[in-house]
Structure formats: structure tokens, C-alpha cells
Design a protein around this nucleic acid. Structure first.
Lengths: 275, 275
DNA sequence: TGAATAGTGTCTGTGAGACAATATTAT
DNA sequence: ATAATATTGTCTCACAGACACTATTCA
């Protein structure tokens, strides 16, 4: 083997084709919260979690729903930049909360060839989406059922179509809370059902010890609305006084009120990111 | 553009070279805990965190220390399998606790070409390492100082050599606890200093709500030893009664004792992974 | 006996959970 | 008045933090 005197000399001579190569994609689980349609005026039906899916118009998995994503260009962009580019394409928005989630890389996840997917979770306030989004894209409301024998069921509904996903969770080791996910259904393209479940669980966990939830809130909101978003993400009801104790220091009351809802108006608050 | 009738037909015709490709590595932050040498018999000097580093014998970064790692073979193995293979090579052990950490992919992290690194954290009980490990590898004791102006200092010492690493932490967004790490020193090869800090922080966080720590414990241990390991990972002293309350349900007392330490013997416990 | 660690008892303050009460608007 | 949500008060119980005390071995 040839001996090199310096790093520059080595780099000049380096044969970049000596290793097997592969392609990578960035795939994004974009989460938001939608209002449940009101059946009667004055009654608030709460909120529901939503995620953005895109219908594939090409093989593989033609005509299947999947997460927005795309191939990363190794010469020019990082995985996060790639994800940002895709989010811009799908939502026409920049400055979206974006966090790396997990790298999925099973050998046959893409039937064409080895493709490693770096997944991200993104959060958005849906009210910012004024323009119609990409015509292949659609928001699906998400309902999550935790069941007995280690099976989680996700029901996705975009008003026209209902998708059901079942995922088995196996504890990987007895010392942690890590699970191996196995998709029982084969509803979405690739392994994107696993990405969605990981994404939801990540945000759910972070909701307990960070302020991520505010990335799904508009500038001004009532504490009732904020509480509903927490409840949707955490998947459980919260008691009013306890909730207000917790977020007391995270928000600032403004002098504006939300009125005309058929009952007592509520004060509008904004997020206090500084202290 | 050609139209395909079926997925099989498409796959047959698929040109896998149409996308730019890249290489990936798995890099592992292997963490353990070592006994601090006793200055005097009867006195227990506690424990210290240790990580395994390997001296590079080739360009780039020739003669620099780095984490054990290596190129993943896209045809045959997943990133986790690659990490397992490397751990086996370096420690001669299988069945090591291994968890995916983060995918590092800045454009110039490897001066040769675009290499994306999927990093892992691994935990081990150092007592299991009977055979001499790989001659290029060495355990470094880790001391971590959290300083004022967002700078973390890591001091690594293997008895012969002392490495100092300074990393700036910038809060990425006001709603979370996520930080951008920027290395101030350039002590280790690649961006492995960032991987080490991420790894330590991951294990530190998980220690608060899981049992990961037991992956660094031998079969039998005293509660004093266990407490010292918790203290080393968490970077703070714990009060005895509080600690015992917390781990009470995680361990089982055996009828064996640890004696001959120059003071009162203590009961040996083992991890209770079932209940 | 004294040094060292092992192991336990108990008080106190904080904070989450639970329930109850009051307030304010629109029908 | 009544329906609906907004907002606040307060009690209790669990539990972490803190400190003190007892126990046991070996130099």
C-alpha cells in the first residue's frame, strides 16, 4: 500500500469510487392540529391531530399515500436542507419547525435499490397555509388507538379516504423504552407508517418537557385552545387548573379577547419565548 | 416519459445510477464506567465515565483519535448491523446495548467526499473485556465541565495522553431543548467530538426515566456501586435514601455479600428485568 | 477504638390530581 | 333563566430533598 507524506497528497490521489455507494432521502412527518367541525353553534368539538400525505404518481408504490420526501443531492445539500426544500415545495412556507427523527435503512424498504431514509418531524400552524398546497398532497386527521397486545392502530382520514394502519411494538430491551415497530398493514408506501408513529411519539414525549407545541399555535390563542392542542398531542384530557399552573410561565396575557362564541369570551395569550 | 403497467415491469427497467450517490459510515460512542484508582486502601475513590477511541492509521486525519466506526456495505448490512460488526471487531463482544443516536451529514465533515455518518451510542460493562482490545484502541476517562457562556469542556485521558475538547452549544429554537453544537477545538477526527457530547447527553437523559444504566453494570453489584454509576452519568451527587427509594423496585437482593473492603460489607443485588 | 461505608427513619415543602365554586357571555 | 365555556380557589396525597441516626466490618 502506497505511503502518503501529507493529507493533501492523499486527498489528491483518493479514489472516491472504491466504496459501494447508495442514495439517501429526507422524509418528513409534518404534523399540525385541525379544528373538529362544529355540529352546533356554541358547542366546541375540540381538535384533532393532522399530518400531510402525498399521493405517489410514480413507481414504486404508484398511487399510494406517503410522506413528503425526496432524494438528497449529496453534492449540494445536507439532509436538513433537503427536508427544508421539500417542505417549501409542499407548503410554500419557510421557517418551519424541523427536527431530525430517525434514520430508517432496512435493506428492502425501497424495492429498487438501497435507499436510506433520514426522517424528520416538522410542526406547523395550519392557519398559515393560505395558498392551496401541492395538488397531490392532502391533510389527514389522525386518530391513535393504543391496544392491548402491543398493537397500535392509526386511522388516517382526509374526508374522502380512510386509511387504517396497525403497528406491532416490541420492546427492544428490558432496560429502556425503545420499541421495534413492525407494520401489520401495508397501507402507506415504504415504511412511512413507522415514521409517522415515531414522529407522533417523539412530539408527544417532547410535549412533556419542552414548548414544542407552540410551533402549532397561531400568534394569539386562548388558553382553552392551547389546552386542546396539548390534549390532542398527549392523547388525554387534562384538568384545567393543573394545565394553567403548568403553562402559567410560558405565556403572556394580551389585552385582546376572543368573543362571539356563544359563551363567555376568553383572553388571548401569546407565547413568551424570553425571560 | 415511458408509462409502466406494473411495479415489476418498472423495477426491471429501473436505472439505479440516475441519482447521485454517497457513502455512509456507522460510528459508535461506546461508553462505560471505570473505577478511579484507590489512593489508600479502605477509601473508595468513586468512578468515572470512559469512552473508547481508536487512533487512525490512515488519511484523512492520520494519527488522530476518533470513534470506532467504518463504512457500511449497502448491499449486505444495515447501519445497525454495521455498528454491531465494528463493536465485535473492537471489543470481541456481541450483545452490546446499541442505540441509534443521530445522523451527522455536514458537507465537509469528511474532506475526501460526501460521507454521511449514522452515529450510535453503545454501553458496556468494562469488566467483560478480558482479552486485550484492538491495539489501536484505548479507553479514555471523560470529565465534563459545563461552563457559563454556552461552552462545554470535555477532558479525555487515557493515562498517557490528555485531550481537551471545547464545544459551543447554541439553542436552536426557543421552544425546545435542542442545541447546535460547534466544536471550538479540533482535537478528534471528523466531527466525532460532537458525537461524543450527543452520546453522553442522550445517556444522561435516558438515565432519568429508563434503566439504561444497568447495561454498564456487572451481574452482581452493590447499591453503592450502582449509585456511583448513576452519579457519574448524571454528573451530580445523589442522596442515599432518595436513591434507594428510586431503585428499590428495579433490583433484587441476593444472599451474597461483598466483603473485605476495610469496612462494613454490603449486600449484592442484581437487576430485576421482569415483573 | 476509630475510620469508613452500609443502610434506615422521618420531617418538610412542593406540586400534581381532584373537586368545587364563581364569572361572563349569548340564546 | 339556561347553556356553555372561562377562570380561580383549595384540599389532599405522594414524593423528592434534607438531615440524622444506627449498623457492621476491619485496620
Amino acid at each position: 500500500m502506497k505511503e502518503y507524506k501529507s493529507e493533501e497528497e492523499f486527498l489528491k490521489d483518493y479514489d472516491s469510487s472504491q466504496f459501494e455507494k447508495l442514495s439517501m432521502t429526507s422524509d418528513i412527518c409534518l404534523i399540525s392540529v385541525s379544528d373538529v367541525e362544529k355540529k352546533e353553534y356554541r358547542r366546541n368539538n375540540g381538535k384533532i391531530m393532522s399530518i400531510l400525505l402525498v399521493k405517489r404518481d410514480d413507481y414504486p408504490y404508484k398511487d399510494r399515500w406517503c410522506l413528503p420526501g425526496g432524494f438528497m443531492n449529496p453534492k449540494e445539500e445536507t439532509l436538513e436542507e433537503c427536508a427544508t426544500r421539500i417542505l417549501k415545495r409542499e407548503t410554500n412556507l419557510s421557517n418551519i419547525y424541523l427536527e431530525q427523527l430517525y434514520t430508517f435503512d432496512s435493506l428492502k424498504r425501497d424495492p429498487r435499490l438501497r435507499v436510506v431514509s433520514c426522517s424528520f418531524v416538522a410542526l406547523i400552524d395550519k392557519n398559515l397555509l393560505v395558498d392551496p398546497i401541492n395538488k397531490n398532497a392532502s391533510w389527514f386527521d389522525v386518530t391513535l388507538f393504543e391496544e392491548k397486545n402491543n398493537v397500535v392502530t392509526l386511522v388516517l382520514d382526509n374526508g374522502t379516504e380512510t386509511l387504517k394502519i396497525e403497528i406491532e411494538k416490541h420492546l427492544k430491551e428490558k432496560t429502556t423504552d425503545r420499541y421495534a415497530f413492525i407494520s401489520k398493514t401495508n397501507t402507506l408506501a415504504f415504511d412511512h407508517d413507522l415514521v409517522i408513529l415515531s414522529g407522533i411519539e417523539r412530539i408527544r414525549n417532547k410535549t412533556n418537557y419542552t414548548d414544542v407545541v407552540f410551533n402549532m399555535m397561531p400568534e394569539l390563542f386562548t388558553l382553552g385552545e392551547l389546552q386542546q392542542v396539548y390534549e390532542v398531542i398527549l392523547g388525554k384530557k387534562l384538568l384545567d387548573p393543573a394545565f394553567r399552573r403548568i403553562i402559567k410561565d410560558k405565556v403572556v396575557k394580551t389585552d385582546k379577547m376572543k368573543t362571539g362564541e356563544g359563551h363567555r369570551p376568553s383572553a388571548l395569550f401569546k407565547y413568551k419565548g424570553n425571560h
